[in-house]
């Protein structure tokens, strides 16, 4: 009786989560294994092996990996510079505020900002041409490409990394560093054997988050490239809007593929985290 009462208190939440998060997702997953008559089939998943779709997954994963790895590295470098690089203390507060803003500055306006900067007539493109005679577009650069998209995604990936890793870096105790030093360790030995292993769970979690963050992003890519760069979310978007694949169930399969990729990325994260956290409570 009493426990029944207790459960009632969380019913609204679970009802909401079921209706608007879990059931819709399950529906897509089930749809991926159904044919148009509602029977079970693996044909949809086989459809994913079409070169066009394999390519789109490949480029999506490549962009997500690249922007997550670079986001982690650059964000880490900037956070480390501020936390332990001997920079004046006042820099931290504005950097954190800016990171809070920039990590949420995604979607359509971000694409506009990069078009205005690195597009064919963008400010940096023009300045490079006028001042240094460098025509980046003649050199093969294109904002509507793998590197262009990665560069754009970094605008929210780096700040996200800074926001998450700065508290973790501040949690490294000065005594750990000093203890390692006095025991004869070099700076790189300290980082390799103490600091990085301690930070590893946070780094890993942030990496998984950054990966999912860019893998599912639609708006920036869509506003930036229209449909010219066929990453998975853009293809799925076009499919939902106008059935460009001529097969609605292939759309479910693609969506299922997306869940599979982010799900596997997070599963890998959970497994590695449990192994890396053996020393934790």
């Amino acid at each position: 009786m009493k426990t029944g009462w207790n459960w009632l208190g969380v019913m609204p939440f679970f009802a909401f989560a079921a209706l608007f998060l879990i059931l819709p997702t399950m529906n897509i997953v089930i749809g991926a294994f159904q044919n148009s008559e509602g029977g079970f089939t693996l044909a949809n998943l086989q459809g994913l092996t079409a070169p066009r779709i394999v390519d789109s997954f490949a480029i999506s994963i490549k962009v997500s990996l690249a922007s997550a790895i670079l986001g982690c590295l650059i964000g880490f470098a900037m956070a480390a510079a501020v936390v332990m690089g001997g920079l004046p203390g006042w820099i931290k507060a504005p950097l954190m505020t800016f990171s809070g803003v920039a990590s949420n500055f995604a979607g359509v306006p971000l694409a506009f900002a990069f078009i205005a900067t690195l597009g064919r007539v963008g400010l940096v493109t023009m300045l490079l041409k006028q001042w240094f005679g460098i025509n980046i577009y003649a050199m093969g650069f294109n904002l509507l490409s793998f590197w262009g998209l990665t560069l754009t995604y970094l605008f929210f990936q780096i700040p996200l990394m800074i926001l998450i890793i700065t508290p973790a870096l501040e949690g490294l105790k000065r005594e750990w560093r000093e203890a390692a030093e006095v025991l004869g360790a070099s700076t790189s030995q300290y980082w390799r054997m103490v600091a990085l292993p301690i930070l590893f769970p946070s780094l890993l979690g942030t990496f998984a988050l950054l990966f999912a963050n860019s893998f599912g992003a639609v708006a920036t890519a869509y506003a930036l490239t229209g449909s010219s760069l066929s990453i998975v979310p853009i293809m799925l978007f076009a499919q939902i809007r106008g059935d460009v694949l001529q097969d609605p169930h292939l759309g479910y399969a693609m969506a299922f593929g997306m869940i599979l990729v982010t799900g596997l990325a997070n599963l890998a994260y959970v497994i590695m985290r449990t192994r890396a956290e053996r020393w934790m409570r």
């Binding site: 105790k173 750990w176 203890a179 390692a180 103490v194 301690i198």
Partner: peptide
């Protein structure tokens, strides 16, 4: 050190 300063990630 006063606060032990053992490396928490090592046995």
């Amino acid at each position: 050190f006063q606060a032990y300063a053992l490396f928490p990630n090592l046995t």
